[in-house]
Every structure is written in C-alpha cells, then in structure tokens.
Simulated assay, not measured.
Amino acid sequence: MRISSRRLGVYTIALVFAIVMNFTVPRLMPGTPVDAMIAQLGSRATPAAIEAIKARFGAVDAPIATQFVDYLKGLATLDLGVSVKYYPQTVVAVLSRSALWTAFLVVTAILFSLLVGVTLGAVAAWRRGGRFDTIVSPLSVVMIAVPPVIIALTTLFLFGVSLRWFPVGYAYDPSLDPGLNFAFVGSVFFHAIMPVLTLSPYLIGEFQTTMRSSMISVLGEDYVTMGRAKGLTSMTVMFGYGARNAMLPVLTNLALMLGAVFGGSIVTEIVFNYPGLGLTLFTASVARDYPVIQGQLLMMTMATLGANLLVDIIYGLVDPRLREAAQ
C-alpha cells in the first residue's frame, strides 16, 4: 500500500513542528539545570564546584540560537547529549531503558482493551436494544469520561493499599535479578496489572462505542443477510461477517487515541512509580533536565507519528477500496 505524498508531507510538517516545540517548551520553565544543580549542593556549592558545573553544563546557559543549532546537530547525529539529572549517563541510555517499560505497558493495555472493547461492541450491536446493550453502552461512556488519574488513585488505594492484592509500585520485585526466567517475567506481569487496568477503561470505552456504531451499519449489509440465510451460527455471522468488516473505524480511532494513551501512561507511571517514560519526564522536569525532556517528548511524538503511519498502511491493506484508489 503506497502512502500519498500529501500524507507524507503532513507527517513531515508534524515532525518539524514537534522538533521546534520540543526545544522551546522546556525553556519556558523558570530556572535552568545549572541553577537547579547549584541549589541542590546547598552549602557545598563552593566557587570551584559552581565553575565545574557551569563548565560541564554551560551549554544550557548559552544563547538560544546557539542551543538550537547544537540541538539540531545532536538530532542529526543521534546524539541527544548527557543527562543533567542522571549524569554521567547519556540521554539515549536513560530513554532507552525507560522506553522499554512504557512500550510494554502501552502495548499490553491496547491489546487487552482492543480484545475486550471490540468484543463488547460487537455483542452490544448484535443485541442492540437488549439488556446487555443498555448496560454496556452507557457504562462505556462513563469509562471514557473518567480521568486516568482518578482511576489510578482509586485502583492504587483499593487494590494496593487497602486489599493489598497487588504491589503498589515499580515494574518488578527488586529482590529478583532481571532475566528470561519464570519468576522475573511473572513479577513483571504481576506488577503491570494495576497500571494496565488504569489505562484500559478509557480504551475499552472508546473501542466499544466505535465498534458498536460500525457494527450496526454493517449488520444491514447483504453479505450478513446471506450468512444468516445459509444457516450459519450466530457467532460465525457476528464475528466472521459482521465484526471483521466493522473493524476499519476501530483502527482509525486507535490512531487518533494514541496521543491520549501516551498522556494517560505519564499519569499512570507517576502514580504507580513505574519506571517508564512518564516517570522519567516527571523527574527530568523537576530537575530542569532539558536534554532528557527534549529527547523524551521527541521520542513520544515520533512514536505517535510512526504508529499513525503504520495504521494508515494497515488500513490500506485491509480495505480493498483504498488499494484500488492508490493504484
């Protein structure tokens, strides 16, 4: 499936805009990383220590034009600089470690929510007007409306603090050595249950409402009537004929929701102390760590644009009409 030049142009403009904003937004905050590091030293901030800090991180106090040129040079060479908060680690090292956890959390939540939301939407459309539909559909609207921070705090207090069913923080048991073994992998999934359950309600609600609307329109098509006339089972007609052809709007909605998913993951990771990009962004913001903030925002922007591009490609592959239009 070919992507039109106009569509690629939109992605290019969005990427350029993101690069400029990623450079500009962190510098709108009061203070600089150098000031923050000097303040942390307190009484230990001797003239020699201050000069050493300025010599190592003086670039953040350079003129804006100089900083922007250095920023573009770093992007061209994939050198995002050295972290102020996690010195002497590089920004790439810090973000690559955090990105793996965020990717695991977001992908797990999307797959789980897609399975549940699509199934609920298909059944609600098949039984529209019935008891199942009258319960599930309004509940989905409520799930969309509740902010992730409310769900995160409620989940943390109820299942983590009060009932103590799940751990209240981090990505795995610190007493375990990371590795491909059952104990470590099981601990990772166990610690991810509450963060995933926090991200999922919004996604499930969106998938359910989109799938229900699309499914209702598909159920009136001739091929669905033909499937029923053949004497096929309700499950076969519902999922094999109806849900399969009603998935296209769900894919489109998924692409539109990716920004909200990453935004929700930031809040979720902060509440559960989950070592992903969201928690890294929070700690970097407090420390005025411009290199990490820039790199993290750029990474999430590129991930969102890349995922949207992937959805466009998949959409063209599953919809024959788009393939014919491209040809």
Rank of each mutant, 00 (worst) to 15 (best):
L139M: 13
A284E: 03
R321C: 14
L15K: 01
W165R: 09
A125E: 02
W126K: 02
L305Y: 09
L163S: 15
P174T: 05
V237D: 04
F166C: 15
A255H: 01
P201M: 05
W165D: 11
V25F: 03
Y170W: 06
L309R: 08
V141W: 15
Q208D: 01
V69L: 07
L153I: 14
T12I: 12
G295A: 00
L180K: 10
F190L: 01
G205P: 06
L317A: 13
W165C: 05
L256S: 03
L297Q: 06
M247C: 07
R321H: 03
T134R: 14
P63M: 05
R288S: 06
S43E: 06
I150P: 12
A52Q: 13
L15G: 01
E206P: 10
F57Y: 00
R44V: 13
P195K: 07
S187M: 05
M257L: 05
T252E: 09
R7I: 08
L256V: 09
V92R: 13
G179L: 11
I216S: 04
Y241A: 09
G220S: 08
S43P: 12
S234Y: 10
G81A: 05
P148V: 15
F68D: 03
S265W: 07
A192K: 05
P201V: 09
D35I: 13
R7V: 10
T102G: 00
P88H: 00
P138L: 14
A14V: 13
L309N: 08
L251Q: 01
P33E: 02
F272R: 09
P320D: 08
V16Y: 14
L279A: 06
M299E: 06
L115A: 14
V141E: 15
M257V: 03
V237K: 08
V185A: 12
L197Q: 14
F157S: 13
I64T: 03
L256H: 13
I38S: 02
L232G: 02
R127H: 09
G227P: 10
V82K: 08
L95P: 02
M211F: 10
